[in-house]
Every structure is written in C-alpha cells, then in structure tokens.
Computed example of a mutant assay.
Amino acid sequence: MTLKEHAETFLALHQPGNPVILPTVWDAWSAKLVQESGFSAITVGSHPLANSLGRADNEGMTFTEVTARIKEITAAVDIPVSVDIESGYAQKPATLIEGLLEAGAVGLNIEDTVHSEGKRLRAPQEHADLVGELRQAADAAGVHVVVNARTDVFMRPDTGTPAERLDSALERMKLAAAAGADVLYPVGRHEPEVLRRLTSELPLPVNSIGIPAQDGRAYFAELGVARVSFGPFLQNALTEYANGLFGIWR
C-alpha cells in the first residue's frame, strides 16, 4: 500500500461514535504487538518514545532522532502510523511533513505548548496558522497527512477556571478545524458531560485519551468520540505488570 493509500485509509477510520482505537507505541516490538493484536492503525507517543531511548518527554529528542525510530516502526508493520511531534521541534512545517513521509508516517499530532520557548502556549490563531501550514505542506507533497490538532489548555491551570478552559479549547479547536485539521485533540481526562460537549460542538472528529485497564471502546463510542489513543498509559501498564513479575525474583 502506498503512503497516499495509507493516509486515506487512516483518515477514513475516524468515525464519531465508532472510534478507531490507536494503542500508543514506541518501537518496532510494541508496534508489531499492536498489529498482531488486530488493530487497524497505530500512533507513536512522544512520552513512551522518549522513555524507550532514555530521554525526557517535551522535546528531549531531536526530530532527526524521532524519524529514525519511526523508520524502524514503519518497516516492521504494514498499517498506518501516526506520530506525536510535540510542538514541532522548532522545525518548519515543510521539514516536518517531509521527514514524516520519508519515515513512512501518514499522520501527526501537533500541540500548542511550545517546549523550545519556555513552554509558552501558542495563541489560538497562531496555532491554527501552524496547522494550516502543515496542511499546505502535506498537500504540496501529494499525501493527505492526517493532522490531529491538539490543545493543552485543559492541562494548564494557569489558563483559567475549568469553564474558561473548556471555552478556550472550543475556540482553539474550531480555529484549527478551519485551518485544515482533520482531527481535534483537546487532551486530558474529561468528565462525560465535558467530553460530550466537545464531541457535539466541535466540527471534526475528536480524539480522546484512554487508559488500557479502564474505560473501553463502548464508553467512548457512546460519547461520540472518533479516535482513542493511550498516551503513555500502555507503556505504564506494561511497566507495572513487569514490576509485578520481577517482584518474585528480588
């Protein structure tokens, strides 16, 4: 399957109320495990990826290091791969798209916390403009890279009260949608009423975060979610399980 076909397949999986489940991986082994378990696509998380190399999350790796690992992952599986590129590693949008496609990825997450600039939060239109530039670069490359626009406002108490953060997230996500995003990711663990408002008021499929040993597909389907990823929680769950096994040998 070509990159263009992978991208089209991946985009079609995003159906509100019938969510695609993307177990978040970090290397070729975890990617093959997910594919062999029957999942249709995968996403590579920045946190577990950094952990696997002994680096810090929040752009503790370079973009070149990220794409080197992505090449290993895409060589090991034949399902669509999306990549969390944090806030963009201070790279130009065209460089990001070129690097991801060269590595065999057909999707990306882009967040509005700028790690290379003291973790400042991009202004709403500033983030939307970046999303638009990524869309333009992908269009120029001839592959509809699936752009998952993320906002971190729910994770930032400094941005206001819970109600103010919800309003801010809706504003930011609507601007990103207008700029060319395919999926919207108001990251955080939300109460059902908040998640339902997000899925009902936002104009594009919504990505939510799940915890492997909790929730379940039906929970997110009922709330109108179109995509579920695990962030660092799959790696965390495997770590806890391994620690339990190791306990009998200490």
Score class of each variant (00 low, 15 high):
Gly99Ser: 10
Tyr241Cys: 10
Ile21Val: 15
Arg196Cys: 05
Arg120Ile: 15
Asn148Val: 15
Ser52Gln: 06
Leu22Ala: 09
Ile73His: 01
Ala176Val: 06
Asn58Tyr: 09
Thr74Met: 07
Ala169Cys: 10
Gly118Arg: 04
Thr151Asn: 08
Gly210Thr: 11
Ala94Thr: 15
Val106Tyr: 06
Gly244Glu: 14
Leu121Ser: 04
Asp139Glu: 14
Ala68Cys: 02
Ala56Thr: 14
Ser37Asn: 03
Phe10Lys: 05
Pro157Tyr: 08
Leu166His: 01
Thr67Gln: 06
Asn51His: 03
Glu222Arg: 08
Ala94Gly: 01
Pro186Ala: 12
Ala177Trp: 03
Phe230Val: 10
Ala178Gly: 12
Glu59Arg: 05
Leu238Lys: 00
Glu98Asn: 13
Gly216Val: 09
Arg135Tyr: 10
Ala213Pro: 00
Ala163Tyr: 04
Asp139Arg: 07
Asp129Phe: 04
Leu175Arg: 14
Asn58Gln: 08
Glu126Trp: 04
Thr67Leu: 09
Trp29Gln: 10
Leu234Thr: 13
Pro162Val: 15
Leu170Phe: 05
Phe246Pro: 00
Ala179Pro: 02
Glu201Gly: 08
Val153Lys: 00
Ala12Val: 03
Ser87Trp: 02
Asn148Glu: 13
Phe10His: 12
Glu111Met: 12
Asp78Leu: 07
Pro23Trp: 02
Trp29Pro: 00
Val206Pro: 05
